[in-house]
C-alpha cells in the first residue's frame, strides 16, 4: 500500500508485572482506512489503544501517529488524535453544547473556529436538537454520539474508538456504522474495536485479531477468512449411493469430520481451492452422482473462533 502509514505500531509491548498485556504487536493503518481490532475480553485491545492515545506508555516498542512517537511527542500525537474510550466520561450538570464547548476550548479552539467546530460536530452527530439537554438525560445511543462528537471536535486525522457500539440498539448501531464510514470517506483514519464482529466485517477495510496480547492475524476480512482456512468445510449432495460415498470419503487422508444427513454430506478437507477441485474431479470419476458441491462460506466470526483459542489473561 502506498504512502506513509498514519498509525504505525512497532513491536509494542506492555507488561503489568508478570502479565503480558500486549506482546510484540506490530501493524500499520493507512490514511482513510477503517481498521478493526478484534479480540476476546482481556486480549490487550484496550491497553494497546490506550498506548496509542498517549494514556499509557509501552514497556518496549513504540507507536507512531502521523510519524510522531507516542513516547517522544505525546503532545503532537494528541493534536492529531481523537480517542473514544469504552466509557462515557461525561460531567454532571452540563448540557450537550456546554460539554462539547468545553472540549473545544480544551483543544485550543477559539472564537469563530470553535463555533464552527461545534456546529459541524453537532450537525454530524445529529445532536442539534438536544444541544440544551442535560447529559444525564441522554439515552446510551445519544451519549455515544456525544462522545464521538467530543473525540472529533478538534478535527483529528486519526480516531480511536474502543467498543463504540457496545450496548447500542440495532438502529443506533447502524447509524454509528454509517457515521464511521462517512468519517473514513472524508479521509479520517479509524481504529475501532468491537465484539460485534459482523459489524466490523461490514465497516472495516482491514482487521487485526488479537489474543493474549499477541496479534494473531492481520488483513482484509476476505484475507482473514481465506488465509486461515487450513480445513475447508465442504457441503456435498449425492443423489444415490450415499453410504458408499461416505465410505469412500473416510478412506481419504485429506478428509475428516464426515456428517451424513440424508443425501447431504458435510465434511472438512485439508487444503485450499486446488485440492477442492481435485476432490470434485475424483468424486465424478468414481461415478458418484454429485448434485451439489460447495464450500461453506466462513464468516468473520468463524475465522475469529478459528484463529483465537479463547485464552484470557
Amino acid at each position: 500500500m502506498p504512502g506513509q502509514p498514519v498509525i504505525d505500531m512497532r513491536r509494542l509491548h506492555r507488561f503489568f508485572g508478570a502479565t503480558r498485556a500486549v506482546s510484540d504487536i506490530s501493524f500499520e493503518v493507512m490514511k482513510g482506512e477503517v481498521f478493526g481490532y478484534i479480540g476476546p475480553n482481556g486480549a490487550g485491545k484496550t491497553t494497546s489503544m490506550r498506548i496509542l492515545a498517549t494514556l499509557d506508555i509501552p514497556t518496549y516498542g513504540d507507536a507512531l501517529v502521523d510519524g510522531f512517537s507516542v513516547i517522544n511527542d505525546p503532545d503532537r500525537v494528541r493534536r492529531r488524535l481523537g480517542f473514544m474510550p469504552d466509557y462515557f466520561g461525561t460531567y454532571a450538570d452540563v448540557n450537550c453544547r456546554e460539554y462539547l464547548d468545553f472540549f473545544a476550548r480544551a483543544y485550543g479552539l477559539r472564537g469563530r473556529e470553535r463555533h464552527q467546530a461545534l456546529s459541524h460536530v453537532m450537525g454530524f452527530t445529529k445532536l442539534d436538537g438536544l444541544a440544551e439537554k442535560p447529559i444525564r438525560g441522554l439515552s446510551k445511543g445519544m451519549k455515544q454520539r456525544l462522545c464521538l462528537g467530543r473525540s472529533m471536535i478538534h478535527d483529528p486525522s486519526v480516531l480511536i474508538l474502543d467498543e463504540p457500539a457496545a450496548g447500542l440498539d440495532p438502529r443506533a448501531r447502524i447509524e454509528l456504522r454509517q457515521m464511521i464510514r462517512e468519517l473514513a470517506d472524508n479521509g479520517k483514519t479509524i481504529l475501532v474495536s468491537s465484539h460485534i464482529l459482523t459489524e466490523l466485517a461490514e465497516m472495516c477495510d482491514r482487521v487485526g485479531i488479537i489474543e493474549k496480547g499477541e496479534l494473531l492475524a492481520v488483513g482484509t476480512v476476505a484475507e482473514i477468512q481465506r488465509g486461515q482456512v487450513t480445513h475447508c468445510q465442504i457441503r456435498s449432495r449425492v443423489i444415490a449411493n450415499v453410504p458408499a460415498f461416505a465410505s469412500w470419503l473416510e478412506e481419504r487422508d485429506d478428509v475428516e469430520n464426515i456428517h451424513v444427513d440424508g443425501q447431504l454430506v458435510r465434511f472438512s478437507q485439508i487444503g485450499d481451492m486446488p485440492e477442492q477441485a481435485g476432490l470434485l474431479r475424483e468424486m465424478i470419476l468414481a461415478n458418484f452422482a454429485v448434485a451439489e458441491f460447495g464450500i461453506e462460506q466462513r464468516s468473520l466470526e468463524d475465522a475469529f473462533m478459528h484463529v483465537t483459542r479463547g485464552v484470557v489473561q
Binding site: 498517549t54 494514556l55 494528541r78 474510550p85 472540549f103 480544551a106 467530543r150 478538534h154
Partner: peptide, 13 residues
C-alpha cells in the same frame, strides 16, 4: 474516578 481526567489529559491542556 469518573475517567474524565483521561479525556482531559489528551487535550491541549
Amino acid at each position: 474516578e469518573d475517567g474524565t481526567f483521561e479525556l482531559l489529559s489528551i487535550t491541549a491542556l
